[in-house]
């Protein structure tokens, strides 16, 4: 292997190791910190099953679900963003920009407030809605020849419309339901519950394995659909498969911690910036997503004058990056 190729590979490995270590450290910090600080030793003893009064409750009942929710929803958001940005070959095309995330929230809010549903059926309806909305956006963009730029603009329009739907539903929601529906609207880990956290963990692991098996095929997409097809990429099967996986990831992550804004949008670009592109950035994107959610939640809890939900912190990062992308894309004279 030439020194340059070795350097590229080392960069990728370093990025994965650093983000993985960071994930573990931040996750550990999340178990230690709270109203009362418990040292790593106490946390380990509690995790091994020892009963320590007060610490056991805080760590197992409050902090563990929150930490698992943060790690695995972060990974899920990161991978979903990676898939959308890769398939649509555009950094703007993440599910939280083109209305996919909002559609899962709108469906959940509608189920809870208007239909009075609860439990697993809510994320299930979100997934189906997310898939339908993806398909509708695709079909609208495919009229008179598919255009990626048009798809993104249509997605942004759909995003706005669904936002209006959410407001309308909320305006006629009883006070009791508002608490339930808020979970689907603000990215916050405060109400993370063990059941949803374990569900998103399972979905994230399964999604990661599936997407990992498709990582090389997804890398062919940047050569163009026709070229990818002649290289054996089976694009017509690949697209629906990976998009469905991404929508599933978004819906279950949102069910667990709400739409933590901009994580999908930011994880992929951060990952390719730090790891380079010598290998698939699927894994670095997942880890970047986890680090973003963990760090945002810790910052929001402990480093701000008041307690802010994680989504507010990530939103602070996402907004300027969106502006930056729009400005630089315009400068290059591209049509998004």
């Amino acid at each position: 292997m030439s020194p340059d190729a070795a350097r590229r590979r080392r960069r990728w490995n370093t990025a994965v190791i650093v983000t993985a270590v960071l994930t573990v450290l931040l996750a550990g910090a999340m178990l230690c910190c709270g109203n009362t600080f418990y040292g790593p030793a106490v946390v380990f003893r509690v995790l091994r099953g020892e009963m320590i009064s007060s610490a056991s409750y805080a760590i197992l009942q409050l902090r563990l679900p929150r930490m698992l929710g943060a790690v695995f929803s972060g990974m899920a958001f990161g991978m979903a963003g990676f898939v959308f940005q890769t398939v649509l070959r555009n950094p703007l095309a993440s599910p939280d920009v083109i209305g996919i995330s909002t559609s899962t929230s709108a469906a959940a809010v509608f189920c809870i407030s208007v239909l009075g549903l609860q439990g697993i059926v809510v994320p299930a309806v979100s997934v189906v809605t997310g898939l339908c909305v993806s398909l509708i956006i695709y079909l609208l963009a495919a009229r008179n020849g598919f255009s990626h730029a048009r798809m993104i603009l249509i997605g942004i329009g759909v995003q706005a419309m669904l936002g209006a739907v959410i407001s309308w539903v909320l305006s006629r929601t009883s006070e009791y339901d508002v608490a339930n529906t808020m979970r689907w609207m603000n990215g916050s880990l405060t109400n993370a519950r063990m059941q949803e956290s374990l569900t998103v963990m399972a979905v994230a692991v399964l999604g990661a394995v599936f997407l990992f098996s498709r990582r090389e095929a997804m890398r062919l997409i940047e050569l163009g659909d026709a070229y990818a097809e002649t290289l054996g990429g089976n694009i017509r099967r690949l697209y629906p498969q990976v998009i469905a996986a991404a929508v599933l990831l978004v819906a279950f992550a949102t069910a667990a911690v709400g739409p933590v804004s901009s994580v999908s949008f930011l994880a992929g670009p951060i990952a390719s910036r730090i790891s380079g592109r010598s290998r698939s950035t699927l894994i670095p994107s997942a880890l970047a997503g986890a680090v973003l959610v963990l760090a945002a939640d810790l910052i929001g809890q402990f480093l701000m004058p008041a307690r802010y939900p994680a989504g507010v912190i990530t939103g602070l990062l996402g907004g300027p990056y969106l502006l930056y992308l729009l400005v630089t894309i315009n400068r290059k004279g591209e049509t998004a």
């Binding site: 030439s2 340059d4 190729a5 590229r8 070959r89 090389e216 095929a217 890398r219 062919l220 940047e222 050569l223 163009g224 070229y227 290289l231 054996g232 990429g233 390719s272 380079g276 592109r277 010598s278």
Partner: peptide, 19 residues
């Protein structure tokens, strides 16, 4: 063909091994 950004010649040639 679309030219992918940020990948080396060797990496691009390796895409030919996908099948």
């Amino acid at each position: 063909p679309a030219v992918p950004e940020g990948i080396s010649v060797r990496e691009l040639v390796t895409r030919g091994r996908f099948p």
